[in-house]
């Protein structure tokens, strides 16, 4: 293939609109859950089909008892610009979470529970990872009602076929 042909096919690929995204949420802290939710919601707002796959600690975002207690990670999080030793002090994570939740509310961004429910209402699919559910011994009824199914990684790839996969 000549360089010109390569350029032409690159240009075609770049111009093709995204029609489907499958977003993996694999971590359970506030700052690791929101981006995936915002991307899923934003995809639906653009008319793009979206599925969310919650795996490992990301399952907390669809766990009835944990969804309202998602915290900011204050240890090992250089983006917060506080010393690591300070992040580990009792109450710091709770305080930082409260502060961030306040900031988020100021911007009129919904809390995680409301956001997940809204994303389900937009028609996006919500799926739990079977291996993680088994690993943590989570029962299906411990997950919020909006969850469409608990699926294997193979089923996830089938569902994601023809679209983009985003891992967060």
């Amino acid at each position: 293939m000549t360089i010109t042909q390569q350029d032409a096919s690159d240009a075609t690929a770049a111009a093709a609109p995204i029609e489907k995204v499958s977003i993996v949420i694999s971590k359970g802290s506030l700052e690791e859950i929101y981006p995936g939710l915002i991307m899923a919601n934003g995809a639906r707002a653009e008319g793009i089909e979206a599925n969310l796959f919650f795996t490992f600690f990301g399952l907390d975002a669809i766990h009835k008892k944990r969804i309202d207690h998602i915290k900011v990670a204050t240890v090992g999080n250089p983006g917060l610009h506080i010393p690591t030793w300070a992040g580990g002090l009792p109450g710091v994570s709770a305080l930082m979470t409260k502060y961030m939740e306040h900031q988020i509310e100021e911007l009129d961004i919904p809390g995680i529970k409301e956001f997940v429910e809204m994303i389900s209402d937009t028609g996006a699919g919500l799926y739990g990872c079977l291996a993680s559910v088994d690993l943590f011994g989570i029962e299906r009824d411990e997950l919020i009602d909006q969850v469409d199914d608990v699926i294997t990684v193979g089923e996830f790839y089938e569902m994601a076929a023809g679209g983009q996969i985003i891992f967060t």
Partner: peptide
């Protein structure tokens, strides 16, 4: 308004909005 704003204040729910405007309610 964005979809979230529409769902909160227009009197039409987010679910209905996507039925009325399937390819993105606020944009359409």
């Amino acid at each position: 308004p964005t979809v979230r704003k529409l769902g909160k204040t227009s009197g039409v729910t987010v679910k209905e909005l996507y039925q009325l405007f399937p390819k993105g309610p606020a944009k359409l």
